[in-house]
Each structure stands twice: as structure tokens, then as C-alpha cells.
């Protein structure tokens, strides 16, 4: 808790957090009033199953954005990893213990490769990750054009499992966010991410290995994409190259809504968590009141504009 309070003070993000948190509470209350099925354990567990995928990808995106970068390869990576997992498990259903770490290693390596190219080629992160996303997507499609593969039942059960009334997905997500927050606030390497993102030159002069930090941030983003893909594969039971396509841009919304600025150096994972809660709950609620998904897009766009354009604490250029 103290870590959270320190986080709030240091980044002067309190305003963003309070606004997003309040909006979330209003949504929950509105949901409870509008539908008697909204505030149920069943919907809660359903919500968290929707939330964990976006949450994981957005978490990874947060690290990259804090570094002043952006990762546009995550969507393609998630798709590729679901294809890898489902195909591998179809071939050897008994090797779940190998498939999961393997997918995490592959994803981390691809993320690190993104960072490495940004550092070595000195090309804008947007271009590198865009190109990488295109390469991954193309390669995945060449292997499997349509959704396919299968997973053992034990793996599928994991996605829907509960501890008591609380879905495992919720516990996992909260635990990972808490760990990530603690790491960012409490360890030297975590703090270096803020430092290198806020002012790379000053960080360099102060002995921070900025290049290493950049590679680390993209590697984490890859690892988080693996987390999302593992859960997604367990839930859907197939590998679908296109399943992540929308995630690339969707994952940025919670990050900026949570107060992390694209210029880097300011923000945090708590904001992202609140952002994910807000976006997912809003979509969930709009589904409950039968608002077409088309308007959900409009609302999502408006949320981005309102969060960023009217956040007066935004960095002036």
C-alpha cells in the first residue's frame, strides 16, 4: 500500500487515478441499477476472463510506453503464440509443461529483438515494431491461415477455474500487476525505466545503461504478450493468427487513460490497471444495455481524447 501511495506522489498521477477510479465506480453503480445480472459473481468472473487478456497486453505496453516507446507488434505476437501453443499441444498434448515456458521464451526473445533493433539500428520504435508485427503476422499466416489446433482439457479447465468464488484469472492478473508495480517502484532496474524514459541523456550520464533498459522493456512486453496468449489459448482451445489483431491498438487505450504519457517517463501500472477495468467494464455494461458494439468504438475513441486532451497535467511541448 505504501508503494502505491509513493507511486501516486512521485508521479503526480493522483488526479488521473481518482478520475478513472471514480468513473469506474459510477459505472459499477449504474450497472447495478440498470441490470440485476450485472453485479453477480457470474458476470464478475466473465468480466475477468475478458479483462485478463487486455490486462496482460496493456501491462507490457505500459513498460514500453514508460520508456518513451510503443509496441505495435504485440497483437501479431499474441496471435502467433496462440497458433504455436495450439499446434504444439495438438502434436504433443502431454507436453504442456514444455509448451508454456517455450512460448514465454519465444515471446521474450522476439520482444528483446524489437528492443535490440531499436537500439542498434536507431530506428523509431513505431517503425521497428510495425515492421516486426507485419513479419510475425505474415509468417504465422503462412503456417496456419485459419484457426486450428487443439489443447488438452486440463489446460482448458485452467482458464475457467475458480478458487472459491474468485476466478483464477482475477487472482493471477492482480498478482502480476502488483509484482510489476513493486518492481517498478522498489527496485533499481524498475526505477531505471522511469529514468531512461523521462530523460535518456540524463540517465546515460548518471550511469544507467539506457540501451539495456530499452531492450528489457520490450522483452517484458513480449513476455506479457505470452501471458495473454497462454490464457487466450486455454480459453478458446484453438490457435488463431488473427485473434490479436485488434489488441495492438486496444492495449494502448488503458495505458493512456491511466495517465501514462506517450512521451515516456511518467505513469504507472496502477493507472493501467484502472484503465483496463474502466474500458472492459464499460464495454461489458454497454453489452448489458444492448448498445451496439459500433457505438462502443465511438465511446472508446472519445475516452482516449477526453483522457489525453483534457488531462491538464499533460506535458507541454
Amino acid at each position: 500500500m505504501t508503494a502505491l501511495i509513493m507511486d501516486l506522489r512521485r508521479n503526480r498521477l493522483l488526479a488521473s487515478y481518482v478520475i478513472v477510479g471514480t468513473l469506474f465506480l459510477i459505472l459499477v453503480i449504474a450497472g447495478g441499477l440498470l441490470s440485476d445480472r450485472f453485479l453477480t459473481w457470474r458476470n464478475f468472473s466473465n468480466l475477468f476472463q475478458q479483462l485478463i487478456v487486455l490486462g496482460m497486453v496493456s501491462l507490457g505496453q505500459t513498460f514500453v510506453v514508460l520508456m518513451g516507446g510503443i509496441d505495435l507488434a504485440v497483437g501479431a505476437l499474441v496471435g502467433a503464440l496462440t497458433v504455436f501453443l495450439a499446434s504444439f499441444l495438438e502434436w504433443r498434448p502431454d507436453m504442456l509443461w514444455l509448451a508454456i515456458p517455450l512460448s514465454a521464451i519465444i515471446a521474450t526473445a522476439i520482444g528483446a529483438l524489437n528492443g535490440l533493433m531499436i537500439v542498434v539500428l536507431r530506428v523509431h520504435a513505431l517503425i521497428v515494431t510495425l515492421g516486426m508485427g507485419s513479419i510475425i503476422f505474415g509468417a504465422t499466416l503462412m503456417y496456419r491461415r485459419e484457426p486450428g489446433g487443439s489443447v488438452p482439457n486440463a489446460f482448458a479447465d485452467f482458464a475457467y477455474a475458480n478458487v472459491g468464488n474468485i476466478p483464477i484469472s482475477a487472482i493471477v492478473l492482480v498478482a502480476i500487476f502488483a509484482l510489476a508495480g513493486l518492481w517498478l517502484q522498489r527496485t533499481r532496474s524498475g526505477r531505471d525505466i522511469y529514468f531512461a524514459g523521462g530523460d535518456p541523456e540524463a540517465a546515460r550520464l548518471n550511469g544507467v545503461h539506457v540501451n539495456k533498459v530499452i531492450i528489457l522493456a520490450y522483452a517484458i512486453s513480449g513476455l506479457c504478450a505470452a501471458g495473454a496468449a497462454i490464457f487466450l489459448t486455454a480459453r478458446t482451445g484453438v490457435g488463431d493468427p488473427r485473434i490479436g489483431a485488434a489488441l495492438t491498438l486496444q492495449s494502448i487505450t488503458p495505458v493512456v487513460v491511466g495517465g501514462t504519457i506517450l512521451a515516456g517517463g511518467r505513469g504507472g501500472v496502477l493507472g493501467t490497471f484502472l484503465g483496463v477495468l474502466l474500458v472492459t467494464t464499460l464495454n461489458n455494461l454497454l453489452n448489458f444495455v444492448n448498445v451496439s458494439s459500433y457505438y462502443q468504438w465511438v465511446i472508446q475513441g472519445l475516452i482516449i481524447i477526453i483522457a489525453v486532451a483534457f488531462n491538464t497535467s499533460g506535458k507541454r511541448r
Binding site: 508485427g133 507485419s134 513479419i135 505474415g138
Partner: peptide
Amino acid sequence: EMQLIIKG
């Protein structure tokens, strides 16, 4: 699909 890879 190779177009995507080459474009990247």
C-alpha cells in the same frame, strides 16, 4: 502472406 513479411 509473404508480402507482409517482405513489407516488414
